[in-house]
Simulated scan of single mutants.
Amino acid sequence: MGLHDTPLLFDFELVSSEDLTYMPMSVRFNLDRFGLRISLAQWQLLPHADRALLARFPVDEDARIEPNFDHALFEMMRTHANVEPEWFTPEQDPVWRGTAAVPEGVLNHSREVAGTAVTLERWAALDPFKRYVLTKLTRKPEASHDFVPAMREFGLMS
């Protein structure tokens, strides 16, 4: 699969990420998946066109995009921020990939903030990228302002 025609944004991201001031979940996904880290300040040093290009990369489990994403990100960061992304070792088996159990953070946040627990059946039916998003939005103890809108968008609550 090639690049998408437009940046990959969920509806709940439009307010905060439409102008790409903040990193969209698609970029966060690829950064996490490939073990790369950049700060928000570094992201904002990139020209809008470069940020839009990074947000067009697929979010499929396809290792063929890794070198392209890596090379593009490294070149952009060197050119516009005079730094390189930091490397880290990605999780071998992140909880969002699993469909045998709903991650504790997602369960807790859905009960507390959304008023309804995500069922295993509905969790397993989500595509991996949506499971990643919900897990990412619940990594901290306090609720993300995007969690309930994401739950609605993903059909997990009305």
Rank of each mutant, 00 (worst) to 15 (best):
F57Y: 14
A49Q: 14
L45E: 14
A52G: 15
R64A: 13
Q42C: 03
L54E: 07
D70L: 13
E75L: 15
L73K: 07
Q44P: 02
V59M: 07
A41V: 05
P67S: 00
P67A: 00
R56G: 06
F34N: 06
L40A: 13
D62N: 15
L45P: 03
H71K: 12
H71Q: 12
P47L: 09
R33E: 01
L40F: 09
L54P: 08
R56I: 11
R56F: 08
L31Y: 01
L53S: 14
L46E: 11
F74V: 10
V59N: 05
A55D: 08
I65E: 05
G35V: 02
R37L: 10
V59Y: 02
D50K: 13
R33W: 02
P58K: 07
P58D: 12
A52S: 15
F34Q: 09
R64P: 03
A49H: 12
N68E: 10
W43C: 03
P47H: 05
E75K: 15
L46G: 12
F69I: 00
F57I: 05
D50C: 15
E66M: 13
Q44D: 12
A41C: 04
R33P: 00
A72Y: 06
A72E: 02
R56N: 10
G35F: 03
Q44L: 07
L54A: 13
R33S: 01
Q42K: 03
W43I: 03
I38W: 03
D70Q: 09
N30L: 12
A52C: 14
Q44I: 06
R56S: 12
R33I: 01
D70T: 10
F69T: 00
R64M: 11
Q42M: 05
R56L: 08
L46H: 08
S39C: 10
R33D: 01
P58F: 04
D62G: 06
F74N: 08
L73S: 06
R37T: 10
R33Y: 01
L31V: 11
I65G: 01
H48T: 13
R56Q: 15
L53I: 15
F74W: 11
R64T: 10
L53R: 15
S39Q: 10
L45R: 11
L36R: 12
R51G: 11
L53G: 13
A49M: 08
L36W: 11
D70P: 01
V59P: 00
L53N: 15
D70H: 14
A49D: 14
L53C: 15
D50F: 10
W43A: 01
F57Q: 06
H48K: 14
A52Y: 14
N30C: 06
L31R: 01
W43P: 02
R37V: 13
F34D: 05
V59E: 07
F74D: 09
D60E: 11
A63Y: 01
F69A: 00
D50Y: 12
L31P: 05
E66W: 09
R33T: 02
S39P: 08
P67I: 00
